[in-house]
Write a protein that binds this DNA or RNA. Structure first.
Length: 203
DNA sequence: ACCGCGATGCCCT
DNA sequence: GGGCATCGCGGTA
């Protein structure tokens, strides 16, 4: 399958977030591929977005990679134990990103099951199967994405997004999750997900 | 089903 | 020192 190119990411996060739905996130480690269809995203629109880490043009060591240009990964630690994986959008100097919130596993089932539950996929309950990747921290756990991959170029060969199979789906827009502090920005409909998909974190 | 809460470390003031 | 783009558990229903 074809890898998404730099120009795909060089657009506003609201557009990229929607277009990433249905695409396939791939992590290759030790020659092993783990892959999942992106089913839920959120757009963070940079300096003017009160929910964004880069709001007001904030430029600290943590946020620096958001200024680095389209197609970089931005991975941060939240609540001391969970990683959140984002893709930087727009040209260098414009600090926007898309948070990948949930995905549907399609390749590397045992790898993901071991990472999340230390079991083989066949041993998982239905609840655990759904719990593999139905949230930003869970997704990072399943795909083994952590801060070592912060700043990684998604136009490279370890962590990237590729075109998926053609699929029909309906895109739902809603408020972003977990940003109640963001005043009026909390009501923007910048969260996107595939309707009726099992792995969406919050319906 | 929803509700409350604790975990745990890094970031930034 | 306060807070966080989360998760899983245990309670009540």
């Amino acid at each position: 399958m074809k890898k998404l190119n730099r120009e795909f990411y060089n657009r506003d996060s609201t557009i990229v977030a929607k277009e990433l739905l249905g695409k396939v996130l791939v992590h290759e480690t030790d020659g092993r591929r783990a892959a999942a269809i992106i089913v839920e995203t959120e757009a963070y629109m940079g300096a003017e977005d009160k929910a964004a880490h880069s709001y007001g043009g904030r430029r600290t060591p943590r946020v620096e990679v958001m200024y680095g240009g389209p197609g970089l990964s931005y991975v941060f630690l939240i609540y001391g134990m969970y990683n959140c994986f984002n893709i930087v959008t727009r040209e260098e100097g414009i600090p926007q990103a898309v948070l990948i919130r949930a995905a549907e596993p399609i390749e590397g089932f045992d790898f993901m099951a071991r990472n999340r539950f230390n079991k083989e996929f066949a041993q998982l309950t239905k609840i655990q199967i759904k719990g593999l990747t139905n949230g930003p921290g869970k997704l990072c756990g399943a795909l083994s994405i952590d801060r070592k991959l912060n700043g990684e170029d998604l136009c490279g060969n370890e962590l990237y997004v590729e075109e998926g199979e053609e699929r029909e789906f309906v895109v739902v827009s809603s408020k972003r999750i977990g940003i109640d502090y963001a005043e009026e920005a909390r009501d923007y409909l910048w969260r996107f997900y595939i309707e009726d998909n099992l792995y969406v974190s919050v319906k």
